[in-house]
Amino acid sequence: MLTITKPEPNRVDIELSGKIDSDEMAKGLDDLLDKSQDVNEGKMLYTITSFAFPDLGAMAVEMVRLPKMFGLLGRFDRCAVLCDVGWIRNAAEIEGTLFPGIDIKGFELTERDQAEAWLQTGMA
């Protein structure tokens, strides 16, 4: 399951759970691009539960949209990643060091309140 919501004008939430196929990936990424069009200095809350690598078709869909996804990063200045898998949180934070202009911080699933506070204030 890949669900994209926009609870505030400059915030987008992503929920990823389990394994996703190419159709679900295409719909989710298109939805993310659409909901992020008018975002500036945005915040993103990315929640990952029951992580499973996407199938090859879903990865191909993501690769096709990769140039648009890089452009999307410039619309956000902060992203909190909630996940119960430590290496995913670490990878997200490393990714944040590779892309200037966006701070990415990983949180355990139980730390949602801390993630929300960090998104609003930037404090850990």
Rank of each mutant, 00 (worst) to 15 (best):
T47R: 14
L82W: 06
L29F: 14
I94P: 06
F76W: 09
D77P: 01
R65E: 12
G122Y: 02
E108H: 13
G101W: 04
D30E: 13
N10M: 06
E62A: 14
W87P: 07
I20S: 05
N10Q: 12
D30N: 13
M44K: 01
T97W: 08
T5S: 13
F51V: 02
M123R: 12
A117W: 01
L82H: 11
G101F: 07
A80C: 11
T97Y: 06
I88P: 05
A58P: 05
R11F: 00
Q37Y: 00
L66Q: 13
I48D: 02
D30P: 05
N10E: 14
L56T: 15
I94A: 15
M25R: 01
A124V: 10
S17I: 02
T121W: 05
R112I: 13
L72Y: 03
P67W: 05
V39C: 10
C79R: 02
D21W: 01
M123A: 13
K19F: 04
A124E: 10
D23I: 07
W87H: 08
N90W: 00
I102H: 03
N40L: 06
M123H: 03
V39A: 09
R89C: 13
I14T: 14
L56W: 12
A60W: 12
E24R: 11
E41S: 13
D31A: 14
V12S: 09
Q120T: 07
V39I: 11
L2A: 11
R78N: 06
I102T: 10
V61T: 15
K68Q: 14
W118V: 07
R65G: 03
W87Y: 14
C83K: 04
D113Y: 00
R65M: 12
A115V: 05
L66G: 07
V85P: 05
D84T: 08
F107N: 01
L98M: 15
G122W: 00
M44F: 05
A115P: 04
D84L: 02
M63S: 15
L33W: 08
V61I: 15
I14V: 15
L29Q: 10
K6S: 15
R65D: 10
T49P: 00
E62P: 01
